[in-house]
């Protein structure tokens, strides 16, 4: 991440010298910092809300139940959490939110799951195999109902806003599988 970040910043600055966008880039320095604060602030309430709702589900042992249903899948995907019921519940809540297209909920629940995964090795600053798989799963999220896209298509005058659904589900499913496969292949080189 170190190199990627430095690379992007330096490249952008150098490139702007040639493309004549120096002013834009200069402005972007400050607007980006403001945007980040705004974004975090917007997320604050949503984070609190979903963490709160999640706590109810946890106390009512609802999460355990959902985790049990998803267990066969979870054990295969995340071998490291087989015996860790807290991590399992948190991961399964995030997957449920993703499947239902509750994007707002998926991130807070995903962070909660990351916290549980981190507990397995609290002092490590290196991502575990399970963490990587989990993040990859979320970046290529499987979403059953792409509500935002359907809405925008409807607004753009589409005859059938949902006609892209099968293609979307298949594409996201397979891209997810590709991501997990690559993650799996690269795990062997673990040096941490």
């Amino acid at each position: 991440m170190n190199y990627i970040w430095c690379g992007i910043v330096l490249l952008a600055v150098c490139f702007s010298l040639f493309s004549g966008h120096i002013e834009d880039v200069g402005n972007a320095v400050f607007t980006s910092a403001q945007d980040a604060a705004t974004l975090a602030f917007q997320m604050l309430g949503i984070l609190c809300f979903w963490n709160g709702l999640m706590q109810i589900a946890k106390d009512a042992r609802l999460t355990e139940k959902i985790a049990k249903v998803l267990s066969p899948l979870l054990d295969r995907l995340f071998p490291g959490i087989r015996l860790d019921s807290d991590a399992k519940s948190a991961v399964s809540m995030n997957i449920t939110a993703n499947l239902m297209g509750l994007g707002n909920a998926a991130t807070p629940l995903g962070i909660a799951a990351m916290r549980e995964l981190k507990k397995q090795d609290p002092h490590s600053v290196t991502a575990s195999n399970d963490m990587i798989r989990f993040v990859v799963l979320n970046t290529a999220c499987i979403r059953l109902i792409p509500t935002t896209v359907a809405m925008l298509r409807h607004e753009a005058g589409s005859e059938a806003p949902m006609e892209i659904l099968p293609a979307t589900i298949l594409a996201s499913l397979l891209s997810c599988a590709a991501g997990l496969l690559v993650a799996r292949l690269l795990e062997g080189k673990r040096n941490a």
């Binding site: 990587i132 991501g179 690559v182 993650a183 690269l186 080189k189």
Partner: peptide, 11 residues
């Protein structure tokens, strides 16, 4: 977490 290993490549 600071060392994210192969996350970005896989994603």
């Amino acid at each position: 977490i600071k060392k994210i290993r192969h996350t970005v490549i896989a994603a």
